[in-house]
Nucleic acid binder design. Sequence first.
DNA 1: CTTTCTGCAAACGATTTGCAGCAGC
DNA 2: GCTGCTGCAAATCGTTTGCAGAAAG
Lengths: 156, 156
Amino acid sequence: MSAHDDGADGTDLLASVDQRLRAAGLRNSRSRQVVVDVLVGAGRPLSLPEILEADVELAQSSAYRNLGELVEAGVARRVESADDHARFELHESLTGHHHHLVCTTCGRVEDFDVPDDFEAGIDVMVHAAESQGFRIDAHRFDLLGRCARCSSASGD
Amino acid sequence: MSAHDDGADGTDLLASVDQRLRAAGLRNSRSRQVVVDVLVGAGRPLSLPEILEADVELAQSSAYRNLGELVEAGVARRVESADDHARFELHESLTGHHHHLVCTTCGRVEDFDVPDDFEAGIDVMVHAAESQGFRIDAHRFDLLGRCARCSSASGD
DNA sequence: CTTTCTGCAAACGATTTGCAGCAGC
DNA sequence: GCTGCTGCAAATCGTTTGCAGAAAG
C-alpha cells in the first residue's frame, strides 16, 4: 500500500531513481542529473521552460529527450495541465499517489492529497467502468481553478 | 441538481443550443450546423478527425474555428484525452455533469457517470484545496485504461 | 447591402528527430 | 575505444490565422 518504503528524507528516493536509471540502461550524464534533480526539488509538476530555467547549460532537446527516457524508465510521469505545456513530475511510485490542483489561467500545477475513503470510492467505480468495456488501470483527478497568484492578479 | 430542465429527447437541447448561438451573435451557417449536429449525435467527445469524417464538405479550419466559437458560446467543451488530439463534447449544462473513460492506447473517450455521493466528496475537498491558495471552480475526473477495441486487439 | 463565414494556404509553437562531435564507463 | 548523450538545426504535426470571395440576414 505504501508508495515508497524507503526513508522519507529523499536520500533513498535518489537511490531508487538511480537504481531505475541503471536498470533501464541509462548513464549518469550531466543533463539527466540536472533534470532529475530539478524534478526532485520541485515539489510540483514542472513545465519544460521551468525545467530549462534551472540550468542554462541544458539544451531544450536534451531536456525533452531525457524526460522521455525518464518516463520510459518509470522515474517520471507526464501531467496534463490546462495550457499547451505538458508538466513532468516524479513517478507516483517514488512520491506517493496524489492528485493535482491546476490553474486554468497560468497552467501551474500543485500536488494535492485526497482522503483515503475518496480513493476507496474510486476503486468501486472502476468496476462499473469495466462493465462499459474499458479495462481501467489508472485514474486522474484534478481540481481546476485559479492559483494564488492568478486569483489576486485579476478580478475577485 | 438537474443539468438540463428541458425534455430529455433532444428537441429542447437543440433549442438551447440555438438560443446560445443566437445570444453569442453567431449565425446559422452550414458548417456550424454540421459541427453541432455531430457533437449532439456523438454521445461521446470527438476528435477533430472524427468530426471531419462526418461531412466531407467541412474544411478543417472551419471545424476548428467553429469549435472555438462553440466553446466560447458555452455550447461545447474541450476535453483532454491521452493522445495529442483534443476532443470536443457538448457543454455539461446541456448534457449533464459526467466524467470520462479515456483509452490510453487510441485516445477514445467515453462518458461515465459517477454516484452522487462521490460528487459530494469532491465538494468537501474543494475547501481543503482552497486553503492551499487555489480558488476552485471545476474538476475533472477520468478513468484511464484500454477501451473495448484496444483491449481485445493486443494482449489481454 | 453589410457582416459573418468559409476554404485555402501559410504561420505557429510545442515536441521530436537526424546528425556529427563529446562524454560516460 | 565503444556506445550512449549532447547541442544544434531542421522536421513534425496539431492547431491557429490572414485573406479574398461566398453566404446569412
